[in-house]
Design a protein around this nucleic acid. Sequence first.
DNA 1: CAGGATCCAAATAGATACTG
DNA 2: CAGTATCTATTTGGATCCTG
Lengths: 139, 139
Amino acid sequence: MSLKQADDHTQCRAMSDVLNRVGDKWSVMIVGRLGDQTLRFSEIRRSIGTISQRMLTLTLRNLERDGLVTRTVYPEVPPRVEYALTPLGQSLRKPINALWDWSVDHYEDITAARADYDADQDEAAKPIRRPYAGREAQG
Amino acid sequence: MSLKQADDHTQCRAMSDVLNRVGDKWSVMIVGRLGDQTLRFSEIRRSIGTISQRMLTLTLRNLERDGLVTRTVYPEVPPRVEYALTPLGQSLRKPINALWDWSVDHYEDITAARADYDADQDEAAKPIRRPYAGREAQG
DNA sequence: CAGGATCCAAATAGATACTG
DNA sequence: CAGTATCTATTTGGATCCTG
């Protein structure tokens, strides 16, 4: 049976499961970097710049486990390992790009909203400052 | 200047910032539950079922800060607080739904890939089992 | 009812050192 | 080069108790 006819609860499981992958810190970036090319471990690492080698390994393993990337080991010295998106990984690029576009289109709205919110918070957090300045000067 | 002409690095900041919100455990679920309705705190909580009141509060605060939901307090006893999506929050539903659809469409592929991967791992982790059974019986 | 405050457990991320 | 192993710091999530 297809999930499309499944109940809401089951669909939610699917969604949150996918979000666990897509929503982690590096997966989307790696999928974006791979695009339709094949890249080596160190190429991915350099193209991202700030990812630790441990996190890159973990993230690639998870993507591989979920069937989104292939990992090809060439038995050479020094070793060479190449990563590429599977067709399934490719198909994820479209909804990810939709989210990417939304981010770019609305990011300024978000930062503006945050600035407003934080300004209000700061205002509310201020010590009460009444227009009265005689008491302690006299005491 | 629009972010659309910004460099890749700046766009990445926007994207990962958005993913930090969208990718957390509850935000997408809340946005989905709100849809185009207005809901009270306890209604959201019940409709999700398993979220703790602390996480619901925190998530709603973050969504409010980012300008995605409005929070309306009615000065009554007992208190009533209503939440609804802003236009910005509404606009997020579309890319989120795209991702939702992808999840539903490909979730079985993912679970199958995981099963394969895990089976291979188990296989590799097994103690070596050669088709040879004479040595220790004779020694 | 809505949510603030606290404490605790678990997941996640980074730095570092080592290896085939 | 492409990892693995280990240790630690930070983040996150949940349980519980308390309040206007």
